[in-house]
Design a protein around this nucleic acid. Structure first.
Lengths: 215, 215
DNA sequence: GTCTATAGGGAGATAGAC
DNA sequence: GTCTATCTCCCTATAGAC
């Protein structure tokens, strides 16, 4: 299953800086394994032993690098594999569709965030603050992207605060995020049943069109 | 918190069936406690002891009634507190908004399904089949409701199979469900940040308008 | 710096008391 | 029919070996 790359003896002529390790760093190996198994099993349902076994070490070997199971979770979340940086403004909306498409080919990552985000809504979950912050930032950014796409002339009413202190564009932003999240669960349970990218695009278009009409 | 309604002593003139218990039935008490705590803590993170403690019995006392922890989960899911039966056809769409509104006042139930549905997307989760089936039925019903609202004249293109074998109305149905689910997670993490009913209504309207325009 | 041995405290479920 | 005593297993984390 897990291959352990051979470790060549590294020669250091002078008494230089601390020896660089050929092996990518145990820490990274553990992070990858943890991300995989948190995704397929959830956080609470995963034991340190599950992760340790994948690397042929003991559970305590894992804990050494992260202090606690919670510390490991935090590190996994920070990992954020942003292969491509998210653009700002109107192009961000297209980027969201692309992301949905990409997620269809990475069940592991998709599952990781889908499962953990919902699990974080339980009492005193260690990832709660992380996800709360993430949603706050996402809502703000996507609201900006929507206003950007509408253009200055149509922006007026959509940007103004509405009921509950939220602007229509802000509500639309929450909706877009919600659609993407909700679709992931449906897709994970039944991949044939939904086309995440198509539906995401449809909802974005429908919401932007509605805002453009000033409703 | 949970009130235990008094059980009137039922008089049996003849030597009828086994003696009625004054207490509502242990089974029901356990179900309510389990639903509460599954909601706030998730399924995997909840122990039988957590539930047993609430009723001042031992974990095995709980297991007696349901055989296994999984059996208890299944029973909780079947519980479905459909206070009001969901209508069919176009009124169902209004009912969805009402449901979102009601969910804002029942964090417990909201959390139960939000957390469990995502958790069910993990490997071999006992509730996986239940949620898969639930989504399949919901998508079909809501698709019907959308077509109903569109009316016969506009229904044509929306009902026809599109890319991936799914009709535009079917995609919209998946989107509506996704929005409701996704909003729940955002709302649970930050109740002030989103208005579930408002956003749900907005998305439904935007999607129906789009279909009506034949896009 | 990296990891193992072991502690110490639950977990779910079986078997059987009342 | 209802529940407890108890078994066995597995969990996270500390302390310390190499």
């Amino acid at each position: 299953m897990s291959e352990t790359p051979p470790e060549p003896d590294e020669s250091r002529p002078d008494g230089g800086p601390p020896p660089p390790r050929r092996r990518v760093n145990r820490r990274e190996q553990i992070l990858r394994a943890a991300a995989d198994v948190f995704a397929t099993q959830g956080f609470h349902n995963t034991s340190l032993a599950d992760i340790a076994t994948m690397l042929d070490i003991t559970p305590a070997g894992v804990l050494h690098h992260f202090g606690s199971k919670t510390g490991l979770l935090t590190a996994v979340l920070e990992l954020r594999d942003d292969t491509e940086p998210a653009p700002g403004g109107s192009p961000m909306l297209d980027h969201l569709v692309t992301t949905a498409e990409r997620n269809s080919e990475r069940p592991g990552t998709t599952q990781l965030y889908a499962v953990l985000s919902a699990e974080s809504a339980t009492e005193d979950h260690p990832a709660q603050g992380w996800f709360r912050e993430r949603y706050t930032v996402l809502r703000r950014d996507i609201e900006g992207a929507i206003l950007d796409r509408l253009g200055p002339e149509q922006r007026g009413p959509a940007g103004a605060p509405g009921p509950g202190g939220h602007s229509p564009a802000g509500a639309a932003a929450a909706a877009v995020i919600a659609v993407m999240d909700g679709l992931q669960v449906q897709w994970l349970l039944d991949p044939e049943a939904v086309d995440m990218a198509l539906v995401t695009e449809t909802v974005i278009d429908a919401l932007v069109a509605r805002l453009a009409r000033g409703e």
